[in-house]
Design a protein around this nucleic acid. Structure first.
Lengths: 115, 115
DNA sequence: AGATTAAATCAAAAAAAATTGATTAAATGA
DNA sequence: TCATTTAATCAATTTTTTTTGATTTAATCT
C-alpha cells in the first residue's frame, strides 16, 4: 500500500477534470463527430442545410448541436430565421492532438497538410 | 441548399468516427479521468492501491479500468494475484493536445515542462 | 393581420451506461 | 488441502443520455 503522493493533493485537480469530462462527453458520440466533420469541411453552415447533410430529423440535430455549443466546440450565429454553426478551431486545438487535425480541424490556408 | 461536397464522400470517414467515439467515451467520465491522472502521476500502479487512492469500491474500479483498457488508453500487466495498470502515453499523445500533457501525460524525463 | 418557414424546446419513451452487492476464478500461503 | 487474498464478472437496479413527435417562438413574406 505505497502512496508517495498524499491523497489530499491528488484530489485537487477534480475541478479541471469535471470541465474536461463535459468536453469529452460532447465528443463521445458518432453523430456529433460527424457534425463536427461536416462543419470542418464546409465551414459556416446553416442548420437547414445540415439536416440534409447529416440526414437527421430537425429536433435531433438541434439537440446534438446544443451539446456541442454548450461545450464550446462549435459557435452559433443567428441571421433572421436562420442559424449558422461553425467549428471552434481554437477550442478543438486546445483539446485534440495535431494528428486529429485532418478530421476535426479546418485545412490550413498556407496549403501545408498536417498529416 | 448548397452542397459543394457530395453526400457520399462526406459519409466516408464514418469508420474513423466510430473508432474515435469509443476513445472519447472512455475519456468522458470524471472518475476515469481521475484514474488516468493518478496513473500518470504514479506510474505503474497496483489495483489494490488504486482502490484506496481513488476511493472506489473494487468492482466499480474494475469496471472503469476495463473501459479505459478496451479503449487502449491504459495497459495492464498481471503478476501473480496482482494487476498493475499504467497509462498508455503513446495513445494519449495520439488523441490529446500538448496543452493537456500536464494532466494526462507523464512528465518528461529531460526535465522540461510542456505547460 | 394571417400564413409560412426555421429552429429551439418540451415531455414521454427507449436505449445506453453506471452502480451495487454477490459470486467466481485464480494465485498464494499456512 | 484448505483458507485467504486479489481482481474480474455477473445480474439487478438506478441513473443518464438519446430519440421521437408535437408544440412553441420568432422572423419573414404576402
Amino acid at each position: 500500500m505505497i502512496k508517495e503522493i498524499p491523497l489530499k493533493q491528488a484530489n485537487e485537480p477534480n475541478v479541471f477534470l469535471k470541465e474536461y469530462e463535459s468536453k469529452f462527453k460532447a465528443l463521445a458520440d458518432e453523430k456529433r463527430l460527424q457534425i463536427m466533420y461536416e462543419l470542418t469541411q464546409r465551414g459556416n453552415t446553416c442548420v437547414c442545410d445540415l439536416t440534409e447533410i447529416v440526414d437527421m430529423p430537425q429536433s435531433k440535430l438541434s439537440y446534438h448541436l446544443k451539446i456541442l455549443l454548450d461545450a464550446g466546440i462549435i459557435t452559433k450565429e443567428t441571421r433572421g430565421t436562420w442559424s449558422y454553426y461553425e467549428i471552434n478551431q481554437t477550442e478543438v486545438s486546445r483539446i485534440l492532438s495535431e494528428q486529429l487535425c485532418c478530421i476535426f480541424k479546418p485545412a490550413r490556408n498556407d496549403g501545408s497538410d498536417c498529416c
